[in-house]
């Protein structure tokens, strides 16, 4: 213990250390993976929101991004595959003072958990959902996902993906989300600001973050880690307020980033309180 303290004196703590379970570092994420950057942006957003840190809770599902809940130093819940949103819904409803963040991956939130996503958005449940979209199932070794581009190779689409991916911001918008944005992990500052805004906004907020998986996606699609980052820099356009229907991910045409939806609607909790808690 004394040894550790001495080391701490020599090496000043990282400004985000108080939000990290430093006793769980090193993390499991691979070299070249973008999840750590998204995670950092989330912590910065939390800090800059000015909200009481003890009132944050993070809920994750299963997968590489799902491990975020295991590293954040607030009450954190690593639930079952796809079920982070309904778990978070119960947590929020039973203690409306909590600020509940759902941090998970595209496979977790939009394949196995897709039904929960659309219903939480429809209800305008007061949650901030951050989806790290790496276009694949990273933890299980790179299988095709609901977000994998058409014709991309994966271990389960060895000759190319015959299916088409979701446009996640369009899905969120159509389902009723009141805040919808998309960034890449390279746009770390925009992302952190967006997360801060989303945390302070009531209702269902959704942020999609494109993030490389060089080991299990890039490797099979002739895309090195730096290639992906170059695409994030050169083939993206920031267009706030863009029509959600133009947000398909196609790096040949250019991928649109920005804040697309920012509207106010009564939340589920506001409606429930108004209808059920004031009656005679």
């Amino acid at each position: 213990m004394a040894k550790k303290n001495k080391k701490a004196e020599l090496q000043p703590a990282h400004p985000l250390d108080d939000l990290i379970r430093t006793d769980r570092i090193p993390h499991i994420w691979c070299q070249g993976c973008g999840i750590g950057t998204v995670f950092s942006a989330c912590l910065i957003g939390m800090k800059h929101s000015g909200l009481e840190l003890n009132k944050f809770a993070m809920v994750s599902g299963i997968g590489c991004s799902g491990r975020a809940a295991g590293y954040v130093n607030v009450d954190s819940f690593h639930t079952t595959h796809g079920r982070a949103i309904p778990f978070a819904t119960g947590l929020k409803l039973a203690n409306t003072d909590l600020n509940v963040i759902v941090f998970s991956g595209d496979g977790d939130l939009f394949a196995i958990g897709g039904n929960h996503f659309i219903h939480a958005a429809r209800r305008n449940m007061d949650l901030t959902v951050i989806c790290v979209n790496n276009l694949t199932y990273g933890m299980t070794g790179g299988q095709v996902a609901a977000t994998t581009p058409h014709m991309a190779r994966s271990t389960t689409t060895p000759s190319g993906n015959p299916e088409n991916p979701f446009n996640l911001p369009l899905l969120a918008f159509a389902s009723g989300a009141t805040y919808v944005a998309r960034w890449t992990m390279l746009h770390a500052r925009d992302l952190a600001e967006s997360i801060q805004v989303a945390l302070l906004k009531k209702g269902f907020s959704f942020i999609e973050v494109l993030s490389p998986c060089p080991i299990n996606y890039g490797r099979r699609n002739k895309e090195k880690a730096l290639d992906t980052l170059n695409m994030y820099q050169e083939k993206t356009i920031i267009k706030n307020g863009a029509d959600p229907s133009e947000l398909d991910i196609d790096f040949d045409k250019g991928v649109i980033l920005g804040k697309f939806i920012d509207v106010d609607k009564p939340t589920h909790i506001e409606n429930y309180d108004k209808i059920y808690r004031t009656r005679e």
Binding site: P86, F87, T89, G90, L91, K92, L93, A94, H116
Partner: peptide
């Protein structure tokens, strides 16, 4: 699936 997930979440909120 969501019903029981919400129940577990609510329980961890102390209810």
């Amino acid at each position: 699936i969501a019903a029981i997930a919400s129940v577990l979440g609510a329980s961890w909120a102390g209810v």
